[in-house]
Amino acid sequence: MPEPVLQKIAMPEAPAQPTTGTVPLIEADKLSLYYGQSKALKEISLTIPEKLVTAFIGPSGCGKSTFLRCFNRMNDLIDGVRIEGQINIGGHDIYGDDVDVIELRKRVGMVFQKSNPFPKSIYENIAYGLRLHGIKAKSELDGIVEHSLKGAALWDEVKERLNASALGLSGGQQQRLCIARTIAIKPEIILMDEPASALDPIATARIEELILELKEQFTIVIVTHNMQQAARISDYTAFFYLGTLVEFDVTSKIFTAPKERQTEDYVTGRFG
């Protein structure tokens, strides 16, 4: 097998956002993942910079979602999954023996493809995670709920009905509530697994705007099927194919001057 092109990704010389600078936050080192006998991820190494948006693209079944779920160890829940290699977040091996998964998931939040608000009130959806982490005082909860809903650009639409059921919201609103719920517990990293794939174009545009706002405070890793979306919102893009990382670079390079033939074929729509 040929050496993967970007064994240890060197940070590109011209960062997409020069003002932000690029500090590596997540480092995957030869990460492989097995479902039983089959190898779903093959020695993936890449470095995700802090406070930028990194997009994972690739055809269905290429392993991009599986890889994303390694960062908060959601794959732990699946029987028969085995992992080799390392993922360091902030220099700490998250698969080490001393890792508290609860603490990890507090620092690495996740927004799912299908919006999944709890069948509780809008307020309780956000308070749930806060209570789990010991915030119980009503005044404090009120403050964080408001702040998070504002952060997720949902406050103006729901401030009159915080005690109404979250299930009465539209799909786009539900997904923004899930984002609010995630940012309420102040993670450093937000993982998004195709967060807009079930939404109409207007709701999608709102989520995209929101992502651009959120990267001021959070490091965002997003899996998307929508290449225009990746081009619009991400600073870096990783292209996956059949469980391998084919190419990882500044987004504009991936879309205009990819090094790999496969990447070019995919982003120009010749396959996938």
Partner: peptide, 8 residues
């Protein structure tokens, strides 16, 4: 998943 991802 949502609950676990929030650190429950």
């Amino acid at each position: 998943e949502a609950s676990l991802a929030l650190g429950a």
